[in-house]
Design a binder for these strands. Structure first.
Lengths: 360, 360
DNA sequence: GTGAAAGCGCTAACAT
DNA sequence: ATGTTAGCGCTTTCAC
C-alpha cells in the first residue's frame, strides 16, 4: 500500500494551511468556494482520505456504535448446521436479526455499526477492542462480565440486550429485553384453555440463563392461574438448548414413570423442533398424542410438520431500540435514570399445539 | 458520561510510566508480573479503556475490516416486506449473509467488522467514513463510484463484491464474485436437456446490472450450445427485479404474440416467485404448462409451491473470501497482482422446472 | 476567510 | 524491566 496522504500534503499542494483543509470537510461553508474547490480537487488527486483515528482522537467521538455478542450467540447453531445440511445458509440467527435492526437504526442516525464476537484476547478482551472505537455500544447479555461493563459505562452509554430483567439493577446500564415471562405464560394458557391440557411438562435451560428462568416463571404463572399443580422446577433442564437436546428431552419425558405429558413446553424452538423429529420417529403423533410448543419464532418453525406453535420475539426491534437508547444518551438526553425496556412478544399458533385439528 | 481515564492517569496512580501501561496491554510478557497486576488493578479501578483512536493513530492500524453496501442491497427487499407481511423477519437478505460470512472470517483473523450502508453525506460520502476507520474493506459493487475506490485503493486493500467480472480491469481492486454465467448456463441446459424445453424466454435486469448481463450470457450460451435460436437480448428486461415485476413479466410473456414460452427463465428468485403467484392466479400450471426457474437460492424458494428450481449463490462464502483476500493483502502477501476470484454456484432442482413430475 | 499552535491518547524507538 | 521522547493526523481555539 502506498503511503497515506495527509492534511499536510493536501494543504501544501493547494497552498493553504492544514486548518483550512480541515474546515473544508468539517464546515464547508466557512471556506471560500474557490478555495474549497481547489482543496477538494487536490484531495481527490492525492487520494486523500481523512484518518478516522486522528479525527476521533481530536474530536473525541467516532460516529460509530458497537455490538458485542458471544462467540456463540445462537443456541444450537452449530449443531443445526451439521444436522440440517443445506438449511445452514437459510437460518436467520438471532445475532443476524439484531445486527440488521441495529444497522438500520444506526444508519438512520448517521452512525456506522461495529460488530464483534468474543474471542479471548489480551488483558481485557473483546469489549475493550470495541469500546475503544465507538461512541457507545450494545452487548448481548452474558457476553461480558458485569463488572467490566459497569466500569466502561462511566465513559460511554451501554445497553444490555436480552439480559436479566428488573433484577440486578446495580449499574448504569440501560437495558432492552423481550417479554419472556408474559410470552411463556400466554402460550401455556393457550394450551390449557384452548386445548384442554392439564398435564404439561416444561423443558428449560440451565438456571444460569435469565431468559430460561423468566420463561419458566411465565409457565408456572399460567399453571397457577389455572389451578393446576405448578412445580417449582422445570421438569427437565438442558445445557445447550439444541435440537439434539430437545430430542433427548422428548424421549425422557415420554418414558418417565408418571406417564407421558399431554404437552411438552420447550423454552426454545430449537429444542421443540428436535423433539418433533424424535416424536415422529417413535410414532407418537403431534399434536394428537402430545402437543409441543417452542419459543423464539425461528423460520424453521414454519417449515416443520406439524408447524410449530411458538412465541415470536421481535429481535430486529430489539436492535433498533438499543440504538435509540444509545443515540438518546449520546445526545445528552436521558441523562441519569437507567432505562429498562421490555418489548412485547406475540403468540404464533400453528399446528403443533393442536390448533387446526380436532380438539383433544 | 464521566471524563475518560487515560494512560497518564493509570500511569500516575500506579507509579509507572505511560510506556509501561502501554506495554501491559501490548506485550504483557515484557512487564514484570507484579507491576502488570498493579497496573491492571488501577486500570480496572479507573474504568480505563485504551482509546482505539489513539492506538490506531500511533500504530497506523485499526484491527477493523469494513463493509460498504448500497442503501438498497437487496433487490425487492422493500417490496417483499410490504407484500409478505410476517415473512419480512424471516428473509435472509444478501447483505445479511455477506455480513455473517465476513464477521466469522474476520473474527477468526482477529478483526472486528465495521458495516455501513450508503447514506449521502459531506464532501466525499460514505466510503470515507469507513475507509478512515478500517485497515481494509469490501464494497458491494455499485455502491461507490469506481474512481473514488481506485484512489483509496492506493492506501489500503479493497475488494469489490459481486461486481463486473473480468471487464473493467482498470484498477488495483481485488474482486470476488459468483459464477453467474456458468450457473445460468447450467440451469438453462437442465431445462433443455432434462425437460425438453425448446422455446424458453429470459427475463433479465437492466443492462447496467453486471450480474444480470452475465446471467443472460449464460442463458444464451446454453441455447447456442443446443442449436436453439438465441436472441441477442433478453425477452424482457425489468427495472427492479421484484416479485411484482416478475408477476407482470409472466403476464406479458403469456400474452405475447408468438404464443407462451415453454419455460420462463428469470434472472432472480424474487421475480420467479412473483411469476409463480401470477401464473397460479391465471390457472396456468407450473411446470406442466410452463416451467419456471430463478437464480439466487433465497429461502422463500423452498417454501413456495411448486418449489422453485434455482441456482444457489454462496453469499456467505463470498464474505469469507473477501476477508481472506483483505487479510492476505494486509499481511503483505499478494502484493501486486490483482486477484479476481469466482465462486462456484450450484443448481437446486425442485419442482418448478419439471423435476419430480412427468416429463413434458 | 485563513493561519498558527496546542493538544487528543497512544505506540515505538531509543535510552537506561 | 522500565522510563523518555517523539510523533501519528486531525480539530480547535485564538489571532490576524
Amino acid at each position: 500500500m502506498g503511503t497515506a496522504a495527509t492534511v499536510y500534503d493536501v494543504a501544501e499542494r493547494s497552498g493553504v494551511s492544514i486548518a483550512t483543509v480541515s474546515r473544508v470537510y468539517r464546515q464547508p461553508e466557512s471556506v471560500r468556494k474557490q478555495t474549497r474547490e481547489r482543496v477538494l480537487g487536490v484531495a481527490r488527486e492525492l487520494g486523500y482520505v481523512p484518518s478516522g483515528n486522528a479525527r476521533g482522537l481530536a474530536s473525541r467521538s467516532t460516529g460509530v456504535l458497537g455490538l458485542c455478542f458471544p462467540d456463540y450467540a445462537d443456541p444450537g447453531a452449530e449443531a443445526e448446521a451439521s444436522e440440517a445440511g443445506e438449511s445452514d445458509d437459510d437460518a436467520m440467527l438471532y445475532s443476524d436479526q439484531i445486527i440488521r435492526g441495529m444497522e438500520r437504526a444506526a444508519r438512520r442516525n448517521g452512525y456506522a455499526l461495529l460488530i464483534a464476537a468474543s474471542l479471548e484476547e489480551g488483558p481485557e478482551g473483546l469489549v475493550h477492542k470495541v469500546a475503544g472505537r465507538v461512541d457507545g455500544f450494545a452487548v448481548l447479555a452474558g457476553t461480558v462480565p458485569a463488572g467490566e461493563l459497569a466500569a466502561i459505562a462511566r465513559r460511554m452509554p451501554i445497553v444490555v440486550l436480552a439480559g436479566p430483567g428488573g433484577e440486578r439493577r446495580t449499574d448504569l446500564l440501560d437495558h432492552v429485553e423481550v417479554a419472556n415471562e408474559d410470552g411463556q405464560e400466554e402460550i401455556t394458557r393457550h394450551l390449557i384453555e384452548e386445548h384442554g391440557v392439564r398435564r404439561p411438562a416444561f423443558v428449560g435451560a440451565g438456571a444460569e440463563s435469565p431468559d430460561g428462568e423468566a420463561r419458566f416463571r411465565g409457565y408456572r404463572r399460567a399453571l397457577l392461574a389455572a389451578d393446576l399443580p405448578a412445580p417449582s422446577e422445570p421438569d427437565l433442564r438442558v445445557g445447550m438448548m439444541t435440537r439434539a437436546e430437545g430430542a433427548r428431552a422428548a424421549e425422557i419425558l415420554l418414558d418417565r414413570a408418571g406417564g407421558a405429558p399431554e404437552a411438552i413446553v420447550f423454552a426454545n424452538d430449537q429444542m421443540a423442533v428436535g423433539a418433533l423429529h424424535a416424536l415422529e420417529g417413535r410414532g407418537v403423533r403431534v399434536p394428537e398424542d402430545v402437543a409441543v410448543t417452542g419459543f423464539d419464532g425461528i423460520p424453521l418453525g414454519r417449515l416443520v410438520r406439524p408447524g410449530l406453535t411458538t412465541v415470536r420475539q421481535p429481535m430486529r426491534q430489539l436492535g433498533e431500540e438499543a440504538v435509540n437508547l444509545l443515540v438518546g444518551r449520546l445526545n445528552g438526553g436521558l441523562a441519569g435514570e437507567r432505562v429498562s425496556k421490555v418489548l412485547p412478544v406475540s403468540l404464533v399458533r400453528r399446528q403443533s399445539c393442536g390448533c387446526g385439528t380436532a380438539p383433544r
